[in-house]
Design a protein around this nucleic acid. Structure first.
Length: 261
DNA sequence: GCCCAGGAGATTT
DNA sequence: AAATCTCATGGG
């Protein structure tokens, strides 16, 4: 199926930006796994070719809606973001399967993108079917050991044994602080991981995950180089970008990792 | 050997 | 409430 794109979108940049981990190069496109959906995807200029899923899913997953244009217009007036839009304007905020997203970011703690991807793929390969991400279920003791998750292993095991995906999906659209507090009751989920799940799978545009990169550039660009708590940094970004904070954060993250900030 | 990586949780101050 | 410690592993 071919999907017309009349707005800015860069598939490769979006996939590699660190919000999603289940993709692999496939010819001149990608093989993508989002929850129980596995499909191929290829971008040719303003066309997006998808094979194995439907248009509604692809548009939702890649954030292909009109809100992006308005966001770019707002960002163009921002002194920090404006210089980045030429290279990062095609980076979209994805909306992936919440359960897969939750496990991915619990695995992300004090890790790096290559290893996170290997860990998440390892979990899918060991317990999933046909590339799909395995649904929660109690796993045999020691079954996660070969995945080499380190001290995240016990958290992932507990999540598989206790989380109800329907409950997780039901958090979308509810009150921000309430959702974050509920996510933080889960093992291995603190402020940062909770806001990742909210930003990348539950549609909370005000979410602002503060990791080492955002902390660094947040201090440099929004606090005059002075120290600031993660909470203050997130507050300032929210005040500056409102419901587009999550997208702004993702652009800043990608640019910072590229040495652009 | 060192330091760092999309942190969380428990303990100490 | 903020600073500190530990957790396991791979890469530069």
């Amino acid at each position: 199926m071919r999907l017309g794109l009349n707005r800015r979108f860069d598939l490769g940049l979006t996939l590699r930006s660190g919000q999603f981990f289940r993709f692999a190069p496939d010819g001149d496109g990608f093989l993508i796994s989002d929850g129980d959906r596995v499909f191929r995807c290829r971008q040719a200029g303003r066309d997006l070719e998808i094979d194995g899923t439907d248009e509604a899913h692809a548009r939702r997953l890649f954030g292909l809606d009109g809100s992006h244009v308005a966001a770019l217009r707002a960002f163009a007036a921002d002194a920090v973001l404006a210089p980045l839009l030429a290279d990062y304007g095609g980076l979209r905020l994805m909306r992936q399967d919440p359960w897969q997203c939750l496990v991915s970011f619990v695995c992300s703690a004090m890790s790096n993108m290559k290893r996170i991807q290997a860990n998440v793929e390892g979990i899918a390969a060991a317990f999933g079917r046909g590339g799909a991400f395995p649904r929660p279920r109690p796993l045999p003791a020691g079954a996660l050991r070969p995945i080499r998750l380190g001290w995240r292993e016990k958290y992932v095991g507990q999540l598989f044994a206790t989380v109800d995906p329907a409950w997780l999906e039901g958090l979308a659209g509810r009150e921000f602080e309430d959702v974050r507090a509920q996510l933080m009751e889960l093992p291995g989920v603190g402020v940062k991981v909770a806001e990742c799940v909210m930003a990348f799978s539950l549609g909370f545009g005000e979410a602002c995950p503060v990791d080492v990169w955002i902390r660094r550039i947040g201090r440099r660009h929004f606090f005059g180089g002075r120290r600031a708590t993660d909470r203050r940094i997130a507050e300032r970004l929210r005040q500056r970008f409102g419901p587009r904070t999550a997208l702004a954060q993702q652009i800043l993250f990608a640019a910072a990792r590229d040495g652009r900030l």
